[in-house]
Simulated scan of single mutants.
Amino acid sequence: MTAAVTDPFAPSESFVHPAFFYRDEQEYLGGTVPFVREALAAGDPVAVAVPGKNLELIRDALGDAAGAVRLLDMREAGRNPGRIIPGVLRAFADAQPPGSRVRIIGEPVWAGRSGTEYAACVQHEALINASFQGSTATILCPYDVGQLPEHVLADAYATHPKVIRSGTDHAEDSEAYAPADIVARYNEPLPPVPDALTFPFDSASLPEARHVAVGEGARHGLAGVKLDDLALAMAELTTNSVIHGGGSGVLRVWTEDGYVVCEVRDEGRLVDPLAGRRPVPRDQRGGRGLLLVNLIADLVRVHTADSGTTVRCWFDR
């Protein structure tokens, strides 16, 4: 007998994940503040992780009640979209008492996000559904229909099983819901870089590869904690290549728009779309490499295919 395969993206009654479309501050507050107040009235734990300006709007509207809410500036907490599930959403949800209905407002997409960041954002939105499947939680995701491009809004319909249209106060099913398709579509080859230091490595040259990465980072202006973060990330990724990626890989380092960018490419293939975004139990040995990279880098992009996997990390100078 063949076991039934469970769709990790299938909507469930216990987990609610609507996109909330708004046009102005009035609509924004009309959709977010009642959400928070209802959670507080029910005794449910509630967090708000939105960009700074919107965070201030909600804080001011809540008044004294804001003290009972976990408030996070998404421009900092979610600068790397790959950090949001493990470092923001699951970190809050998993800290609550068993049986609690967790409520979160999460706004990872805003006008001004670069195209490079957006690809990671939309994959994040799609993967929330798999990460929280079966959980007792509601995650409301606001989208500014006046500022965001049409393709971003179309993607929101594909990554959210329910939507709240601008000017309405009720959720309806999204007929375009297809998160697995989004994950696959945005698993796109990363743009080539013509001028980068290139260093092939294997198990014997692992220490040298790390030394090269740190030296290039320092030469391009990284120092202190940022340089330590780069060193740790490259140690994790190059080790993963040797252990899981065919025994060798290629390290590349360059600068781009005020960032030091490091890339590790090998012949391995990531088959778990939540790799690096799933919290790891305290008693589990290993499995923290890509998660750690997501938590410390300013941006992480991943492309995986039958021919191998590329992980590219940005560190702000």
Score class of each variant (00 low, 15 high):
Ala178Gln: 09
His160Pro: 11
Pro179Cys: 01
Ala180Ile: 00
Ala180Glu: 12
Asp173Phe: 01
Pro200His: 11
His160Trp: 12
Gly167Ala: 14
Tyr177Asp: 06
Asp173Asn: 05
Thr198Pro: 06
Ala178Trp: 04
Gln147Ala: 15
Ala184Gly: 05
Arg165Gln: 13
His211Arg: 15
Ile164Arg: 12
His160Cys: 12
Tyr186Leu: 15
Glu172Tyr: 03
Ala209Thr: 04
Pro194Arg: 07
Glu188Gly: 00
Leu190Trp: 08
Thr168Cys: 10
Ser205Leu: 06
Ile182Tyr: 03
Ser203Cys: 01
Phe201Asp: 04
Gln147Asn: 12
Asp202Tyr: 01
Phe201Lys: 06
Glu150Gly: 06
Arg210Ser: 11
Leu153Asp: 09
Ser174Tyr: 03
Asp155Glu: 12
Leu197Lys: 07
Pro200Lys: 11
Ile164Pro: 05
Ile182Ser: 03
Asp169Gln: 15
Lys162Tyr: 09
Ala154Asp: 15
Tyr157Met: 12
Arg210His: 11
Ser205Phe: 04
Gly167Phe: 14
Pro192Thr: 00
Pro179Asn: 01
Gln147Arg: 15
Pro192Met: 01
Lys162Ile: 00
Asp202Glu: 03
Glu175Ala: 15
Val152Cys: 08
Ser205Asp: 03
Tyr186His: 15
Ala154Gln: 15
Asp202Val: 01
Pro191Gln: 05
Asp181Tyr: 00
Glu172Trp: 02
Phe201Leu: 06
Ile182Phe: 03
Gly167Asp: 14
Tyr177Trp: 06
His151Ile: 07
Glu208Ser: 02
Ala180Gln: 10
Thr168Tyr: 13
Glu208Met: 05
Ala176Cys: 05
Gly167Arg: 14
Pro191Met: 03
Tyr186Val: 11
His211Gln: 15
Glu175Met: 08
Asp155Asn: 14
Glu175Gln: 13
Val183Ala: 10
Leu190Asn: 08
Pro194Leu: 06
Ala154Pro: 00
Val163Asp: 03
Val152Trp: 07
Ala158Trp: 04
Ala204Asp: 14
Leu197His: 09
Arg165Ala: 14
Ala154Cys: 02
Arg185Gly: 05
Leu148Ser: 04
Ala176Asn: 11
Arg185Asp: 09
Asp173Gln: 07
Glu188Ile: 08
Thr159Ala: 02
Asp202Gly: 10
Thr159Val: 14
His160Leu: 12
Val183Gln: 05
Tyr177Thr: 04
Glu172Thr: 14
Pro179Arg: 00
His160Asp: 11
Ala171Gly: 10
His211Leu: 14
Ala156Asn: 07
Glu208Trp: 00
Glu150Met: 11
Tyr177Arg: 05
Glu150Tyr: 08
Tyr157Thr: 09
Ser205Cys: 04
Ala196Ser: 02
Lys162Met: 02
Glu172Ala: 12
Ala178Ser: 13
Leu206Ala: 09
Phe199Asn: 01
Val193Ile: 09
Pro207Gly: 11
Glu150Gln: 15
Ser174Glu: 04
Leu190Asp: 08
Leu206Asp: 09
Leu153Pro: 07
Leu197Ala: 13
Thr198His: 08
His151Thr: 10
Ala171Glu: 10
His151Trp: 13
Leu153Val: 11
Lys162Leu: 05
Gly167Val: 14
Glu150Thr: 14
Pro207Val: 10
Leu197Asp: 06
Leu206Ile: 14
Phe201Pro: 02
Ala158Gln: 15
Pro207Gln: 10
Arg165Ser: 13
Asn187Ala: 08
